[in-house]
Amino acid sequence: MTYRKRKKKTYQIKKYIPFYLMMMPALIYLFINNYMPMPGLVLAFKQYNVREGIFGSPWVGLRNFEFLFTTNDAWVITRNTILYNLAFMVFGTVCAIGAAIILNDIISKRAKKAYQTIILLPYMISIVAVAFLVNAFLATDEGFINNYIMEPLGFEPISFYMEKKYWPFLLVFLNLWKNVGYNCIFYLANLGGIDPGYYEAAALDGATRWQRFSRITLPFLNPTIITMTILAVGRIFYSDFGLFYQVPMQSGTLFPVTQTIDTYVFYGLMGGGSMGASAAAGFYQSLVGFVLVLATNIIVNKVSKENAMF
């Protein structure tokens, strides 16, 4: 290495020192929170015993994983988790982009801020409060829908918490209602960064609104969409525990459509379950998530290299 090159390198490191410093708190946090507990993963393969501690406890191979797969529920909970997450991903992205575009086109700054706040509001509400809001609408005896809509119109009241067919729609709707406002912020920020010159030029050349959207807006949003999707894919085996546990009010009758991996693990291990089994469930979820993220990234790499994350 020549003197000049070395000098250049030190210069570069020096140049970036402030940035490294700025990154430090986040890196330290990441290390403490995400990397330090990692050796604890061995718990998934052990029968935990307090006396011997995490590392001294006896190995049990894959026995802790059995409870997830031996039952007939394994298929139902896996299907629910994946299908709901896919629905959330697809509808969530479409609605968030739609909302972002509509918000972006509003000229009055004040109105824009007002609308944005209103659709962001549900994201801020605790899921427990949401569960009671939903209950206020759906309850059989005292619910709004049964008392003020079904009864005056002469329909039989519906026991929402006892009927499975409504819940797939309800849960997807609630997830959208809650998260669209937050997700659209990402897209809104991107839209603001697009040079209006492109649109003006396209309009001059006679491009329709749809053409302007599909040829200009979408390509600009692509990197964000891909990043957000890859992140979501990594979490496809995790479910929004609050949404699936609190909102259906733990009604057992709804389990075939509301039970996900997280709630199943919770119910199964609540009564004196083993630490090993819960660790195993978490290990399984993160493993599948990791593989899926890698797979998605490989696909993105093949389709459009410049948009891949790594």
Partner: peptide, 23 residues
């Protein structure tokens, strides 16, 4: 322990509704 966890889920699914007479 695996069977107990599975049965606990089944009980959660059916027993409360049955005990309440809701089904």
């Amino acid at each position: 322990i695996n069977e107990v966890a599975a049965c606990q889920n089944v009980v959660q699914q059916y027993q409360i509704a049955l005990d309440a007479g809701a089904v």
